[in-house]
Design a protein around this nucleic acid. Structure first.
Length: 653
RNA sequence: GCGCCUGUAGCUCAGCUGGAUAGAGCUACGGACUUCUAAUCCGUGGGUCGGAGGUUCGAAUCCUCUCAGGCGCGCCA
């Protein structure tokens, strides 16, 4: 808000595209400055200080909004002093009037953004790595929605993959009673799941056990092969059983993430992609546009491939970088299906799913699912797919196949859609040595980080983690917490923890670190907000007039008042930038900044003064109104921000 | 072998498109609650920004090389 106005003027005056800003070393120089003239000096062939002085002259005759003084300083900086009174006079009433719409762009966007996240194999419980994915995707969706895009959030369910096959095989054949062909039902099989253990937890262990045993057990290997074909075929009773199992585990996943306020619009099942003939349509398209090639020779003989890198020599002999979409046995690879699915997301496929409601979520919204016995798209109250932009939240290990998907779109001729295919890549969550030890992993070496592994069953399960954080929050409180408050604090703590790291930062999960409730945490954000609410509540109890009056602004604002105003004023531009970069860690960082600016202001409203007077005890009615308005404004912006971050807006802790 | 990412305080991490004296949190030590929420705040200590060159008026940021760690390069998903 402050810098925007200055930047607009400077861009015009100096005819440049971007204006960088920075903070001068001493406060006396200015509240902020720009080194733009320094970088212009060379191309303009003039001393930077000269350009700066000239620009300052021009700015003085037409001061930018909220600026009271412009100076230049060697070797060519332009320094700005903010007119805090003018800023307060505009900003505070604006925040208070707009309320929960403050900081939101006035106009909506035409584009529809499709966001896919979570997408956990439906064969066992979620772990903390999956939570990172879900929290990132959910937050991105919230930000884009706020910025006026129409969004659609979907969770892809890979119900035909090997992972589901493994668990189904394990359930049917690992322990007695084993499934026998011809037996009518699966009662006995379901009976194996203990009453006191959630299905997804049971499958977590079962899957790990199966991995251990299958290699050395030819019978199991053969059974797995059978199950694979039975599920693929879609007709056999085992196929329905697999679907039923997947459905139950998906439901468990949904309940897990709902604890962190994560919801979806649509569940997309891989089996439906297959049965609706998405691949056949895509295959025709790819062949027609000559985007894929049938190999008659070389390592990929008999396959349909995307020409991507040709042959390359490695240690292990000649390899092909080309991506196989159809194997020599005629089956489609995962990437192949992904291309088809990506085309559907953009509405480029002449095929569609059938849909039906899954249920109402805790946020009050309907969750839809694709289904074989569903309704065709034209009979639905809403239209899925047909997006202008697609964001796939997937960990970085899948960068290459994601790139292939984009490349295929480009080869087919969908250049624009390829551009708008965004892989939101993030690094995986690993375990610290301490965490690995606690989970019983034997440490064979001195590594710093240990990968979680579904195959061996090592990992911190999401529900366990959520429970632990909640427990910790309750322990650390100096008074008994309401159930809902504890849950909200735990959720905020977890979301913040998973959000504050940059995308390329590997989170090395450590229990001490992740269970922190002090300092740079989600609890701190909630606490600051609740504290503001508490002050306002107390002011109301005392019948203090909170009505904003422009004449309440003091002649000189204190340092902490200025600091808070400054951060408040940058809210909308920070959100806008986050929407462009999709780097949600910046939003988390801003949240901490905002909360600590407020806390600073709360602790030292007047740092120069000997004693700090509580707002509600101030004798000066004007100053009291001003400071309480600042509290109100903070509470308002913080609440908007917390909602963007998917966190509760607790009024009392 | 090739490609991508990372390396910043004892620990965990920020540092937007190059800008003036590199910042938080945690940890350690010392302080501040008869008060609007102390899950807070204040103070002290802590740095060859992996290393070496280069570009530039100016580099944690850009380029080259190099060391270390992670990941990818499946007719797996």
């Amino acid at each position: 808000m402050i810098r925007d106005g200055v930047a607009t003027l400077l861009k015009e005056l100096l005819t440049v595209e971007e204006i960088p800003f920075n903070v001068p070393p001493q406060k006396e120089i200015g509240d902020f400055s720009s080194a733009i003239c320094l970088s212009l000096a060379k191309e303009r062939r003039r001393p930077p200080l000269e350009i700066a002085k000239e620009t300052v002259e021009k700015l003085r005759s037409n001061l930018p909004p909220y600026i009271r003084e412009v100076t230049s300083s060697p070797p060519g900086y332009i320094n700005f002093k903010v007119d805090w009174r003018a800023l307060a006079e505009d900003l505070l009433p604006q925040i208070l009037e707009k309320g929960d719409a403050f900081g939101r762009p006035a106009s909506t966007r035409k584009e529809k953004v499709f966001i896919e996240h979570t997408s956990v194999n439906p064969n066992k419980a979620m772990h903390i790595g999956h939570l990172r994915n879900a929290v990132l995707g959910d937050t991105v969706a919230r930000v884009l929605e706020w910025l006026g895009f129409s969004t659609e959030v979907c969770n892809y369910i890979d119900d035909t993959g090997l992972q589901v096959v493994d668990v189904v095989t394990a359930l049917l054949y690992l322990d007695p009673p084993r499934f026998t062909p011809g037996s009518s039902g699966f009662e006995d099989i379901w009976q194996k799941v203990p009453e006191d253990q959630p299905l997804d937890y049971f499958c977590w262990d079962l899957y790990a056990r199966f991995q251990n045993e299958v290699e050395a057990n030819p019978t199991l290997l053969q059974k797995r092969e059978e199950v694979l074909h039975q599920i693929e075929g879609g007709k056999h009773p085992i196929s329905s059983f697999a679907k039923e199992l997947a459905r139950k585990i998906v439901q468990a996943h949904l309940e897990t993430v709902a604890q962190l306020s994560i919801f979806y619009d649509l569940l997309n099942w891989e089996s439906d992609i297959i049965r609706q003939g998405f691949w056949e349509a895509t295959f025709e398209l790819l062949k027609e546009r000559k985007a894929i090639r049938f190999e008659t020779d070389g390592p990929n003989k008999g396959c349909w491939v995307v020409p991507f890198g040709g042959l390359v020599e490695t240690d292990e002999g000649v390899k092909s970088l080309d991506k196989i979409l159809v194997r020599s046995n005629g089956s489609v690879t995962y990437t192949g299906k992904d291309v088809a699915y990506q085309l559907w997301k953009f509405g480029l496929l002449q095929r569609d799913f059938l849909y039906r409601p899954w249920g109402i979520q805790n946020n009050g919204e309907m969750l839809w699912t694709t289904a074989q016995q569903g309704e065709p798209a034209d009979r639905l109250p809403r239209r899925f797919g047909h997006a202008d932009r697609v964001i796939n939240v997937i960990d970085r290990r899948q960068s290459y196949p994601q790139q292939v998907v984009g490349e295929c779109l480009r080869q087919i001729g969908f250049e624009k859609e390829a551009e708008e295919s965004i892989h939101l890549a993030y690094e995986v969550v690993n375990l610290s040595a301490q965490a690995a030890r606690l989970l019983g992993m034997e440490e064979t070496n001195e590594k710093k980080a240990f990968a979680m592994s579904g195959r061996s069953g090592t990992g911190v399960k999401a529900n366990d983690f959520i429970r632990m954080v909640k427990q910790k929050v309750i322990e650390k409180a100096d008074h008994p917490l309401e159930e809902g408050v504890a849950s909200s604090l735990a959720s905020a703590a977890i979301r913040y923890y998973l959000l504050k790291f940059t995308l390329e930062s590997q989170i090395v999960f450590d229990f001490d670190e992740a269970l922190k409730t002090t300092g740079d945490t989600g609890v701190y954000l909630e606490y600051a907000h609740a504290r503001a609410c508490s002050i306002l509540r107390k002011a109301e109890e005392r019948m203090i007039d909170l009505e904003w009056r422009r004449d309440c602004i003091p002649a000189d604002l204190t340092e902490t008042e200025r600091g808070l105003l400054d951060v408040l004023s940058s809210f909308s531009s920070v959100v806008a930038r986050t929407g462009e970069t999709l780097r949600v860690s910046q939003l988390a960082e801003y949240a901490f900044d905002l909360a600590s600016s407020f806390t600073n202001f709360y602790e030292h409203p007047d740092p120069q003064a000997e004693v700090q007077t509580l707002f509600i005890h101030l004798q000066d009615n004007g100053l009291r109104t001003f400071r309480l308005s600042l509290v109100r404004a903070f509470q308002n912006v913080m609440a908007n921000l917390l909602r963007l971050l998917g966190m509760a807006t607790l009024e009392k802790i």
